[in-house]
């Protein structure tokens, strides 16, 4: 049920994000979702891409620090309170969210949200108990 995410270290300098996206484009990697966490002097770019191995390879070759880690993608109901329901389930199970961001997926009927939990297994169990749909990598790119 895990989806692999590629995280990239970015120095807070002009042109760094442009370089990363350029390398991915050259390697024919399509970006499906992204989020940037920024601090005063560095940023972390998090990407969901259609070919995570190719993406990692091309960035490593470009001497860019990156790593692959697992995230959880869930579908939320497309109505007021849809996201609140999911967060409520997590809160009830006392699960901390490291960060989250949305996937822009025009074709999907339901919005998809990427979650990073410190306790991934427990979070997935809590969500499944609450009847929340968890999206696999295959479903995401299938």
């Amino acid at each position: 049920m895990k989806v692999r995410q590629l995280s990239v270290f970015l120095e807070n300098k002009v042109g760094r994000l442009a370089k990363v996206t350029h390398l991915l484009g050259e390697a024919n990697v399509n970006i499906r979702a992204l989020s940037v966490a920024d601090t005063h002097d560095f940023g972390i770019l998090r990407l969901i891409v259609d070919d995570v191995e190719a993406a990692e390879k091309c960035l490593r070759e470009g001497k860019i620090v990156c790593r692959i880690n697992n995230v959880t993608v869930v579908a939320v109901d497309n109505r007021p309170g849809g996201l609140a329901k999911v967060l409520g389930d997590l809160n009830a199970a006392n699960i901390n969210i490291e960060y989250m961001y949305a996937i822009a997926e025009p074709k999907s009927e339901r919005p998809l949200i990427v979650f990073r939990f410190s306790e991934g297994e427990r979070a997935v169990a809590a969500l499944q108990n609450g009847g929340v749909e968890i999206i696999s990598e295959k479903e995401l790119f299938g």
Binding site: Q5, S7, F9, A37, T39, F42, I44, R46, R60, V65, C66, R67, N69, E98, Y99, R116
Partner: peptide
Amino acid sequence: EVSPLVFSDEVRVLE
């Protein structure tokens, strides 16, 4: 310099 070994997707780890 940040090595691939210490890099993390979480800001708090790098902080």
